[in-house]
Lab assay of single mutants.
Amino acid sequence: AELMTLTIVKGAQGFGFTIADSPTGQRVKQILDIQGCPGLCEGDLIVEINQQNVQNLSHTEVVDILKDCPIGSETSLIIHRG
């Protein structure tokens, strides 16, 4: 298992991935745009978004944080894999 830092840019259609609740937090459910989120894999656990720890937040709260990220700006994700 490892922590990885990824930088992704939000496009007009969003980030290009969906998230779902899991017992340990929000996991990447589906990658819709592989080019839009390079390095991200289905099943990755989202630990931080732009230096904000999201592991204890609800699904709705994490979705809102992602929605609030401006289109075209870089967003830093720390994910836990494995």
Rank of each mutant, 00 (worst) to 15 (best):
R81N: 04
I79V: 06
E48R: 06
T24N: 12
R27D: 01
Q13A: 10
R27E: 04
K10M: 06
G16E: 09
I8S: 09
D33T: 11
E61L: 10
V54Q: 00
I49S: 00
I71E: 10
G14H: 11
K67L: 07
T18N: 12
K10I: 03
D33L: 04
T5I: 04
V63T: 04
N50H: 13
A1F: 01
I65E: 04
I65L: 08
I78D: 05
D68R: 05
Q52T: 11
L32N: 05
T75D: 07
F15T: 07
C37F: 15
I8G: 07
N56C: 02
G16W: 10
N53Y: 08
L66F: 14
V63D: 15
S58D: 03
E48H: 15
E61W: 01
T75G: 08
A1R: 15
E48M: 04
G72K: 05
T18Y: 10
T60M: 13
G72P: 13
L6Q: 07
C37S: 13
I31E: 02
D68I: 02
K10L: 02
Q51D: 11
E42Q: 15
C69D: 02
P70T: 06
M4R: 04
V47S: 07
G36V: 12
H59Y: 06
F17T: 00
P38E: 06
M4N: 09
G36R: 08
I31N: 03
E2L: 05
L66G: 00
N50E: 13
V9R: 09
T60P: 03
Q26I: 06
E48L: 06
H59G: 11
Q13L: 08
Q51R: 09
S58L: 11
G82S: 07
N53R: 09
K67H: 03
G39T: 11
L45N: 01
F15A: 04
L32R: 08
V63K: 07
L32H: 01
I65H: 02
L57C: 10
G16K: 11
S22E: 06
E42W: 04
S73D: 05
Q26T: 12
T24F: 09
T7I: 12
I34P: 08
V47N: 02
I34R: 07
V62M: 03
A20E: 04
I31R: 02
A20Q: 15
V54I: 08
E61Y: 01
D44W: 00
Q13P: 12
I65K: 08
L3Q: 13
N56A: 08
S73E: 10
D44C: 00
C69T: 15
P70A: 03
V9K: 05
S76Q: 12
K29C: 07
E2D: 09
V54E: 00
R81G: 13
A1E: 11
P23Y: 04
E61H: 09
C41N: 12
H59K: 05
V28N: 01
P23R: 11
A20V: 06
D33E: 07
I49Y: 05
T18P: 00
C41S: 14
Q35P: 02
I31K: 15
I79A: 03
P23I: 04
C41Y: 08
A20D: 15
E61K: 05
I79F: 10
F17N: 00
E61M: 15
D33H: 07
G25T: 02
L57M: 02
T75N: 06
G43D: 13
Q52E: 12
S76N: 12
T5F: 03
E48C: 04
G14T: 11
G11L: 06
I19S: 01
L3T: 13
Q52F: 09
D33K: 03
L6G: 02
E2T: 10
A20C: 02
G16I: 02
G72A: 12
N56W: 15
Q51Y: 07
I71A: 04
A20R: 04
I49V: 15
Q55P: 01
I31G: 06
T24L: 11
Q26Y: 15
N53L: 08
V63M: 14
D44R: 00
N56Q: 06
T24E: 13
I31V: 10
K67S: 13
G82K: 04
D64K: 13
S76F: 07
C41V: 14
P38C: 04
M4H: 11
R81D: 01
T60W: 08
I78C: 05
R81I: 00
K67T: 15
G14A: 04
H80F: 05
Q52H: 11
C37L: 12
E61V: 05
G43M: 02
G82L: 04
P38V: 07
L32W: 04
G11K: 07
E42M: 14
G39L: 03
S22H: 15
D64L: 05
K29L: 03
R27L: 12
L6E: 03
P38R: 05
Q30H: 09
N56E: 15
V54L: 07
I71G: 14
S73C: 15
L6T: 09
L77D: 00
G36F: 02
G16A: 04
C69N: 03
Q52M: 13
L57Q: 08
F17G: 00
N56D: 11
L3G: 11
I49M: 03
V9D: 03
Q13I: 03
T75Y: 04
V63H: 01
L32Q: 03
G16Y: 04
H80M: 03
P23T: 09
C41E: 13
T7Y: 05
K29A: 07
Q26E: 13
I8R: 01
N56P: 15
G14F: 03
Q55W: 05
